[in-house]
């Protein structure tokens, strides 16, 4: 099990800073790893791909390695000493569209991204994500208030879906919006910890200026009712998840013929 702490960020073009800049700041801030939530958009605009063609996943077959795509993420890892993890966050309004996207990026045999997340927020999307064995993380479950109850938390636990404690409104919202976010976050924390559902913690930075160090997030968490261990465990969980999925990808993709790893069984 890893003790490393990871942050999960939105990079350029959807965020304001490139993966490299986020990684550079993450290292300085004491992180060991960085999950790129929008590796799909990043790799489509890979600065090292000069002819403008986005990488074609379909042709790569079983040798496909999401973190070797165009070499960019791997180059950043080497340059800044922070483990850069390819991720995708499926952010759509309805479960059937989400199911289609999910099928495109991950099947039993292969995964295009090391971490696959589904952005929640509505009751239907939270439930869909929590019930999907192929989903690693249910992110932003509180975008619309009150949509995680004990039933969703139980499903998340049973299907190995991490529920995200998104600290970004604590850090960046003000006034009544922040008060509501804090109220919802408290309720979420009580439900998730009570039902023993797995979880991750993030400040969801979308620029290098919005990265806050692990110690800062622990302090912010403590100010709003999280204990230190919960925040630290949530930052480590991203790394643990990345490690587990890479191991599975290695088993099922690099050695065809050997029993293929499945996303729905054993080590959740």
């Amino acid at each position: 099990m890893t003790e490393d702490r990871y942050e999960a960020a939105v990079a350029h073009p959807e965020g304001r800073s490139t993966v490299a800049r986020l990684a550079s700041t993450a290292t300085e801030s004491g992180y060991d790893g960085l999950v790129v939530r929008n590796a799909d958009a990043v790799l489509a605009e890979d600065p090292t791909i000069t002819d403008g063609d986005p990488p074609d996943h379909a042709d790569a077959g079983e040798d496909y390695d999401p973190e070797d795509d165009g070499g960019y993420l791997r180059t950043v890892t080497a340059e800044y000493g922070v483990d850069v993890v390819s991720g995708v966050e499926i952010d759509v309004d309805d479960p059937s569209t989400a199911a289609g996207r999910l099928g495109n990026v991950r099947s039993r045999e292969r995964t295009d991204y090391t971490v696959v997340a589904v952005a929640g927020g509505s009751e239907a999307m939270n439930r869909f994500a929590a019930e999907s064995d192929r989903v690693d993380v249910l992110t932003r479950p509180l975008r619309r208030a009150g949509a995680v109850d004990h039933v969703v938390a139980d499903e998340a636990r049973d299907h190995g879906v991490r529920v995200e404690f998104d600290l970004s409104p604590v850090l960046r919202a003000t006034g009544g919006r922040r008060v509501r976010a804090l109220r919802d976050l408290r309720r979420l924390r009580e439900i998730v910890l009570d039902r023993d559902a797995p979880f991750v913690v993030s400040a969801r930075p979308d620029s290098h200026l919005r990265i806050r160090s692990p110690r800062e997030l622990v302090a912010v968490g403590e100010a709003v009712g999280f204990d230190r261990e919960t925040v630290e465990a949530g930052l480590r969980e991203w790394g643990r998840l990345a490690g587990r999925n890479r191991e599975r990808a290695g088993e099922s993709f690099i050695e065809p013929g050997v029993e293929r790893g499945r996303y729905e069984e054993d080590d959740r």
């Binding site: 800073s17 490139t18 490299a20 800049r21 550079s24 600065p47 180059t75 200026l209």
Partner: peptide, 12 residues
Amino acid sequence: HAFAGATPIDLE
């Protein structure tokens, strides 16, 4: 009107 944060490895 804004900036994008990058590093030398992002530049061609």
